[in-house]
Write a protein that binds this DNA or RNA. Structure first.
Length: 425
RNA sequence: GGAAAGGUGGCCGAGUGGCCGAUGGCAGCUGACUGCUAAUCAGUUGGUCCGGGAAACUGGGCCCGAGGGUUCGAAUCCCUCCCUUUCCGCCA
């Protein structure tokens, strides 16, 4: 969320930045008008309240001394009624202003390339190279069906389209991946493991920026007013909602595995093959709370932490710096990590690492006392480390043999009872 | 799900309509004393919003789980919701 003071002080600069993010600039003008109105009302009502407080004390004294206070009380009744009217106006204006501010996206960092969409993204680096095959590599859905490790047809019976059943060694591979990724992040990179709730209340969804604008993207319970977590970012970032941390507490690194639930609204008919775009998928998430001055260094480190998984799995990938038009609502700077799927003959995003600066912290009221004891907002970051729905296919496709077996990557074998390949039963 | 008791500042805990943003204790910070540690004494201690000021700071509003209500005046009375604890029920 935006600091209204920032908008008040340099509206043109803010508008210039938001233009790059394809934002309706009237939001900014509306917010400024409401801000002015709000402060005018506060000026009026607080004068009345100060008088009210003063005279109330005098009434108390008069009563104590046994004097008749009825004339003063009658006069204060009028003031009190006025205060109620002003307070009602103020509450209304506050709510309107807040709504405007909640719909204004974050400002992109100056290092982010300007552009309308993903075409303006910049390739930052590659790792590894496309594996070569002496046969035509198959897509993961064909291999998985042949090996009987994924079943999407029966998942339709259980739930519906865009759900999948992991079966046998497929389920074991999925579980191995999750454990492997958590172990790397906790043991090598200093993250604390979290297992959070995956039903989320409205305030937390607002805190990380999913609400109010993107309510249609999330699955929602009929009762109570809870949402299914679209990513562990939501429950884990909100762990410190409404807290004032101490300088010595920072930085905080959390990692969490959760299933993630997304409606994928607007993508009907797209990417229906395989498991790359499911309503439910598994993801290990990395979340950081850091001092403002450190957040861009921390973003680089976080991205490398996510990449390290792909390196250990020996999977070819590239890192993209997203353009202003391709970034999400809350982010100030985002790197996407895209892993190569040889069978599909394309890269797929398997991680998105973002610095939100104080955007989420302001919404979720996550602050800390700095060395001078001043209360300020922390910076929050997160990134997938990684999403299995894009990683599992990459592993299957990159490690396939001519006769449709899958070689298990070395690092996963300890997690799979030592087996080195998945074969047809 | 049923019944009861509660939610007060970093922590403990007092306060049932009028100088209560809140007694007291602990912890923290500052100073004094002490060779050091400890002890003792004195002072001090939150958040947020609006205004003034370059700033230190300062004037005012609001904050006693959340939101409403009654009243000239609410931590205190009333209503709704949330949460905690205990007992009963149910249950992986």
């Amino acid at each position: 969320m935006f600091d209204i003071k920032l908008i008040r002080d340099n509206p043109d600069k803010i508008k210039e930045s938001l233009k790059k993010k394809r934002t309706d600039l009237s939001l900014v003008d509306d917010a400024l008008l409401l801000d002015k109105k709000r402060r005018d009302i506060i000026g009026e009502v607080e004068k009345l309240k100060a008088e009210n407080n003063k005279v109330s004390g005098e009434i108390a004294m008069m009563k104590k001394e046994g004097k008749d206070a009825s004339a003063v009380i009658a006069a204060m009744k009028i003031v009190s009624d006025k205060i109620k009217v002003f307070d009602g106006e103020l509450a209304k204006t506050d709510a309107e202003l807040n709504t405007k501010l909640l719909y204004i996206p974050n400002i992109p960092h100056e290092s982010v390339p300007a552009g309308d969409d993903e075409k303006a993204n910049v390739i930052v680096r590659h790792w590894g190279s496309k594996p070569s095959f002496d046969f035509k590599p198959k897509p993961h859905w064909e291999i998985a069906e042949y090996l009987d490790i994924l079943d999407d047809k029966r998942a339709v019976k259980v739930t519906g389209a865009r759900f999948v059943i992991y079966k046998g060694l497929g389920a074991l591979l999925e579980r191995a991946l999750i454990n492997f990724m958590l172990d790397v992040q906790t043991r090598e990179n200093g993250y604390t493991e979290i297992m959070p709730p995956i039903l989320i209340n409205r305030d937390s969804m607002t805190g990380t920026g999913q609400l109010p604008k993107f309510e249609n993207d999330a699955f929602k319970l009929v009762e109570p007013d809870y949402f299914l977590a679209p990513t562990a970012e939501v429950p884990v970032t909100n762990i410190h909602k409404d807290e004032i941390l101490l300088d010595k507490d920072l930085p905080i690194y959390y990692t969490a595995y959760t299933p993630c639930f997304r409606k994928e609204a607007g993508s009907y008919g797209k990417d229906m093959k395989g498991i790359v775009r499911m309503h439910q998928f598994n993801k290990v998430e990395l979340v950081k709370f850091v001092r403002p001055g450190d957040s861009y260094d921390e973003l680089e480190k976080l991205t490398l932490n996510a990449e390290s998984i792909l390196q250990k799995l020996d999977l070819h990938y590239r890192v993209m710096l997203l353009s202003t038009g391709d970034m999400t609502f809350a982010s100030a700077k985002t790197y996407d990590i895209e892993v190569w799927h040889p069978g599909a003959d394309r890269f797929w995003e398997t991680s998105s690492c973002s610095n939100f600066e104080d955007f989420q912290a302001r919404r979720a009221r996550i602050r800390f006392k700095d060395k001078e004891n001043k209360v300020c907002f922390v910076h929050t970051l997160n990134g997938s480390g990684l999403a299995t729905s894009r990683l599992f296919p990459a592993i299957i496709e990159a490690n396939q043999t001519k006769d449709m077996e899958v070689i298990i990557p070395e690092v996963l074998r300890p997690y799979m009872g030592g087996i080195d390949r998945i074969t047809k039963k």
